[in-house]
Structures are given as structure tokens and as C-alpha cells.
Nucleic acid binder design. Structure first.
Lengths: 253, 253
DNA sequence: GCATGTGCCTAACATATGTTAGGTTCAATG
DNA sequence: CATTGAACCTAACATATGTTAGGCACATGC
């Protein structure tokens, strides 16, 4: 469902890797930096949907980078309930932190067919010798943290309609930032259950809300393709403000 | 209520600063490192409860470190609702990230009377020249991120009773880690409204749950002092597992 | 010593969301 | 072509939590 074989052939819309596209929005990179970063995305591993990338408790000697497709960071509760704490899209590191924290405190799974780069820690260490790249990696990590805060607000203080709307806005901006969305339209290959697991809702209720959004002519969502018909209203009703993604100040620095 | 004048006189139980106590659980520090870090906590600013530490949109040239008392990281919604995304206790940096992200995407307020150190960015830059300290700061940042993930799970997938229990366990371990808790007892100077703002609940419902916890003989909570009578049960019912705080592997480096 | 405010507590009632159950569609598979 | 399974969709009913309203206790300040 998620990715046609054709789209697997062309790893990303933009010219460079999604990682480079993303980091260039905040850091001035040299050609040399760019090609070193691009090289990380060479030779990714092909994975099917619902495959484990890394599991809680593991201490890998390499880190993972999304090159294509979607994945989710999640935790399981004793009763089997799942809470997704992040959606990972192309250009996102899965577990940059594990080098310092030692052991994973959560798991990661692909959601769609995906391409994931396995990068030895030594390569990361070499890259972070370059101050510009080190700073860009810091930035990416801190934005991930800002997204977590936004999710807490979303789950804690917004009702289901607002929360789903907010998530759609966030994913739109993030996808556009790696060249995978345009014209208020992008691939959102999540099941209603996965959306619910991210927002603390049941699939039944996610369905109710999506029906209402369609009836309101806010969005279309069909076979993994989301089209936002009234982005202004989606933003307004959910109180979305992209400042926490920290991609606006592209001009400075 | 929060802090007696007497306790203001003795900034922390342990011998060093709370920051040193915390970082030493994960990093081998030299005497030199220790005293450099301790010096950060010298001359903190005294603040009353409910005072703004930093506001959304600000771009400070210094960063803030909690030396004593409690603060909260929060976001306000258009309708005035507040979501707290973190409780800050002694030893916690408030905004280490603002150096790289440029602008605050949320606000921070004291909750109790507090002592907050104002540290010029240059001092931080100098400290992170030392690899051990740089790594320890990284660790602290990444643990903050892990706590955010745990909160998402808490708010998204646990009911009010479990969520409050989980938060009490987390704060117990964190307070103990800076020498401010012992014997399942610590100062928890939060109003029921503040607890609710952290967990996405109303104060009325927080009250209901606390009453039930007292009736069950799980805890006592009176005038800002929490005593956990049955820590095992509190852990078990909330599914608490301290692994995400990453303070267990103290033995290894 | 009275007034004021803040936090705590309780009760009656309202509602968003969960639960259970089952039907429909459609792509994948043998 | 029939079968299977996943995802989607819907409905009736259950419940955890929110809302509104007000009383109580205690500390603070005049």
C-alpha cells in the first residue's frame, strides 16, 4: 500500500538525500559536508512494513537513519497497549542518542516498506569532528525534543479533532521540509490504528473524527494520500504554530 | 509553603551542587571538572514562586540552571489552557537548547521559591571544551528527551490513577538522584492544579484520584510532602520502570 | 481579629471517548 | 475464481473524566 515499486526506484524528490535537504534549512554546509552526509544514505537496507528496526534494551554499535518510508518510535505497556512517541520520516535519525545513553529505552518499527541506512558509530564520530555538521546534528536532536513537547500538549490538552488536525499540520511541514510534500498534499501511509496509537485514541474514535473532517470538507484521505483542502482552518482549529520545528530562521546563520 | 527559610540556607543535602551530584552518576569527573561545575551554581538569583524564568519567543544570551526549588516548562493554548511539559528540579538545566535552536518555543516559570543560576553562554562554551563535561551535558539533554517520551506514554495510554502514580515514581527517582529524597519520601510542592496541567487532567479529577490513593494507603501527601507507603505497589500499578532515566549503569564509566 | 485569597475537597450532572460487535470493501494469495 | 485478512466503517452502549458550583481550612496582611 505505502510505497509503489516505482517510488522505491527514486529515493527522494529533491536532488540530494533527505538528510541533506533537512539540515540545509538550518546550517550552511560546504560541498564537502554535503557529500559526506549524502554518503550516509548510500546503500540503505530495504525493509518491509512492520519490521523491527531496533528494540528496547538493545545496545547497537551502529545507528539508523531513515532514507525512505515511514517508521515509528513506540513503547509497549504491560497490558499490551502501544504508545507511539514519534513518526520517523526520510532524513530522520532513529537512534542517534543510543551512543550516549547506552541502551534503548523504547523500540522502533517500520510502518511501510522502507529504506534504512545502518551507520557505524565510527562514521558518526568522524562527521561530528566537523563543527558545522556537529551543530546540525545537535539541531536535529533538539528539534526532535521540541516535537515531543508539542505532542505532550497535543495529547494532554486538545480534543481528538484538534489533535488529529495538529498532527496533520506538523507532518505536512516536516514532509515539505524534506521535499516530500507540496500543495498541501502528501503521503500519509498510517492506519487509523497507528494514528490512534500516536494520539492516545482508539481506532474507532479516530475513524469518527476523520469522517467529520471529510464531511466538513477539511481534508481528503484515501489510500495513504492526504490532501488538505483548507489548511488555514486546519491550522486555526488545532492552534498549530510551526515555530517549534525551528525551520523558519533559514535566512540567518 | 514550598521552602522554609531554613532550607533556603542549606542549598542542597549532598556535599556538592545538585548538578554535580546528578552528572556524577553517569560521568567520571575530575576534581577540576567538579569545581568548574560547582562554580556554575554559585551566586544564583533568588526568585519567588510563579515568576517567569524565560518566555516563548525569547532569545537569551545566557542559560538558566535550577539550583534550588521547582520550576515548570509549559505551553499555553489559545483558549488559555496550560500544558506543563516538564518539572524542573535542582540540577536541571532550563534551556541549554536555546543556544542552538535560537528561540524559545515554550515558557518556564518557577513553581516555588527558587534559586536559579544565570550562566553566560560563553561559560557553557568553555565547559563543553572538556570532553567529559560535554558528554555529561549531552547525557542530561538526552535523558530530558527520554522523560518526554515517558510522559507521552503516561498521558496517552494510562488512566488518571496510573498516570499520577507513574509521575510520583519518576519524581522520586529523580529527586533521590540529586540527594533530595530518601526513604520513599520527598518534597512535592505542587498544587493539584499543577499536577493536572502536567497530566492533562482537571484539578477536580486529580483530587478524586489522590483521595483514592490515600484511602488505599498508597501514599500520604500533605503540605507539599509526599510519603510513599507502598512503593512496590505504586510501581506495579503504574508500570513504572526507571530504565528511561538512564541512571542505573553508574558502575560502567 | 477580621478580611482576603488560595488551595483543598465534594457533589450532581454532562460529555468525549472507550468498548464491543459486526458489516463492507478490496487487495493479496492460492 | 474463491478465500483470506487487513483496513475501514458504523451503531449501541458503557464509563472515565470534565464542568459547574459551592463549602471548608488555613495562611497572610491590614
Amino acid at each position: 500500500m505505502s510505497l509503489s515499486p516505482a517510488s522505491i526506484e527514486r529515493p527522494h524528490c529533491g536532488s540530494g538525500s533527505p538528510l541533506v535537504t533537512k539540515l540545509e534549512t538550518v546550517a550552511k554546509l560546504t560541498d564537502d559536508d554535503r557529500s559526506a552526509l549524502s554518503a550516509l544514505c548510500d546503500d540503505p537496507r530495504e525493509m518491509g512494513p512492520r519490521r523491527s528496526v531496533i528494540r528496547e534494551g538493545e545496545r547497537p554499535d551502529h545507528i539508523h537513519l531513515m532514507v525512505e518510508g515511514w517508521a515509528a518510535r513506540y513503547k509497549l505497556l504491560p497490558d499490551g497497549a502501544r504508545q507511539i512517541t514519534a513518526f520517523l520520516i526520510p532524513g530522520d535519525f532513529c537512534d542517534l542518542h543510543v551512543t550516549i545513553l547506552g541502551e534503548m529505552d523504547h523500540s522502533i518499527t517500520t510502518l511501510t516498506r522502507a529504506r534504512v541506512a545502518y551507520i557505524p558509530r565510527s562514521k558518526i564520530d568522524a562527521l561530528t569532528e566537523r563543527p558545522r555538521i556537529a551543530k546540525a546534528f545537535w539541531w536535529a536532536t533538539l528539534v526532535d525534543e521540541a516535537v515531543l513537547r508539542a505532542w505532550i500538549v497535543n495529547i494532554g490538552r486538545r480534543d481528538a479533532f484538534e489533535a488529529i488536525a495538529h498532527l496533520m499540520c506538523e507532518l505536512y511541514v516536516r514532509m515539505r521540509n524534506v521535499g516530500l510534500a507540496d500543495d498541501h498534499c502528501y503521503e500519509l501511509p498510517l492506519t487509523q490504528e497507528e494514528l490512534g496509537d500516536a494520539l492516545g485514541l482508539t481506532p474507532v474514535h479516530v475513524n469518527r473524527v476523520l469522517q467529520r473532517m471529510r464531511a466538513d470538507d477539511l481534508i481528503s484521505l484515501k489510500s495513504g494520500q492526504l490532501t488538505i483542502h483548507d489548511y488555514r482552518r486546519l491550522e486555526a482549529t488545532s492552534g498549530f504554530n510551526a515555530n517549534y520545528l525551528h525551520i523558519a530562521q533559514r535566512a540567518e546563520n
